[in-house]
Structures are given as structure tokens and as C-alpha cells.
Design a protein around this nucleic acid. Structure first.
Lengths: 99, 99
DNA sequence: AAAATAGTTCAAATATTTTTGAACTATTTA
DNA sequence: TAAATAGTTCAAAAATATTTGAACTATTTT
């Protein structure tokens, strides 16, 4: 079990991870693209839309997922992504209020 | 004058600058400290509270100011800082809604 | 079965950010 | 006027993040 100091540490790390994930033009474009397409979309489609290589896409999606900003679901060859609104609410929208 | 595409570019740059500024443990500590002290505080006092060197403080305060997250006022030897809530509102709290 | 497609992994190269200490300016105190 | 205090600037070093291409796995299409 984690004590309350450890929980704060953890949350602080998560907070930084979220801001780091948002602090990049490519990832911001990906997020904007997803926000404007409410249905599930494959990584490849997003990658094409924002004009990056497969490798670069793989790197950026991994980072966004690690930060909890997107959820992913693999179906056969393809990986579908959606925004995780809860993470945005907790670590972005409510950030100022909660600190 | 800037056209509307240039304005979006500009704002997108500002958005990234804000997230970059927030994506660091020291700067987050500084911001938390300021949030919990509503009155003006000198850089040195904050620096002592978060346990960093003068040089490091100077670097981080400059970055926060460039991002518009803090305002500063110099009075003789000392520089007083306060949070700029408008910037938090526009680029953090309202981020998700506005993209 | 071969070719095409979607995505991952790895390591090297590059770019960016952060830390550090020394030297500096300006102001205040002794 | 000398010493102390508050903060800045600079350049080098160290740490982190990003890009790239080649090789890979797994699945689907021809």
C-alpha cells in the first residue's frame, strides 16, 4: 500500500508526465485531431492526417498513452485510439483548482 | 497585422510554451508555492522555499514569465512575482474546451 | 505462398533543456 | 566606503527528448 506522501509523489509525477505529453506540437495536433473526431480512429489514419512517419507516430502515441491521455484498443493489425477525457479533466482542466 | 492563420500559429506556440513551462518539477513547486501565498513574494523567498540555487531560480522564473504564467515587479534589489491567473484560465483550465 | 499493410522496437544521431559556477550589476547595510 | 544581499548573464557540461532508418511481428489481401 502507498502512504499519503507516496500518493502525492505519484500524482505529482503523473501531473508532470501529462504536461510533458502536451508540450509538443505533434502531440497537440494528434489531440486536436482526435477531439474533432469523436469515433475511434486508427493510429495510421491520424498519422497520415498530421503528416508524420509510422515510427514517429508509434513514439508519440506511446507517450500519450503512458500519460493516460489516450486509450487504445488493438484489433488485428490496427490500433484504435480515443482521448481519455477523465485524464484531461483531472490533470488539465482542474489543475489550477486542485494545486 | 497578423492574419487569422498567423494568429492560430501564434496561439499554438503560446500553448506549447505554457505546457513546457508546466512540465517541470521545480516550476510546478514554484507555482504551487505561489498559489498558496496570495500576496507578492520575492524570487529569493520562493527559491529558498523550494530549495534551489539563485542561478536555477533565475532560469526558471524567466521561463515562467516568458510563458506568461507569472508577472513580476522589480523593486530595488528584489523582484516580486505573482501568478497570472488569466494565463492559467486560457491555456490550462480552458484548454480542452477550446481546442 | 507471396506481397502488402499496420504497427513496434532498437540504436545511433540530433536537438533541446537543465544545471553549474564564475563573473557581473545594482542596491542596501554596517 | 566596504561588505552584504538580490538577482542576472554566460558558456560549458550534463541530462533528456526527438528523429531516423532498418529490421522485426502479426495480420490481411492477392
Amino acid at each position: 500500500m502507498l502512504n499519503s506522501k507516496q500518493k502525492n509523489q505519484d500524482d505529482s509525477n503523473k501531473q508532470i508526465q501529462v504536461f510533458k505529453a502536451l508540450a509538443d506540437p505533434i502531440r497537440l495536433e494528434i489531440i486536436k485531431y482526435l477531439k474533432h473526431h469523436s469515433h475511434e480512429i486508427a493510429c495510421g489514419e491520424v498519422g497520415k492526417a498530421v503528416n508524420i512517419s509510422k515510427t514517429s507516430g508509434s513514439y508519440h502515441f506511446k507517450l500519450l498513452e503512458a500519460a493516460g491521455l489516450i486509450d487504445t484498443r488493438r484489433e488485428a493489425r490496427e490500433k484504435y485510439v480515443t482521448l481519455n477525457k477523465q485524464t484531461f479533466d483531472k490533470y488539465v482542466t482542474d489543475f489550477y483548482q486542485n494545486i
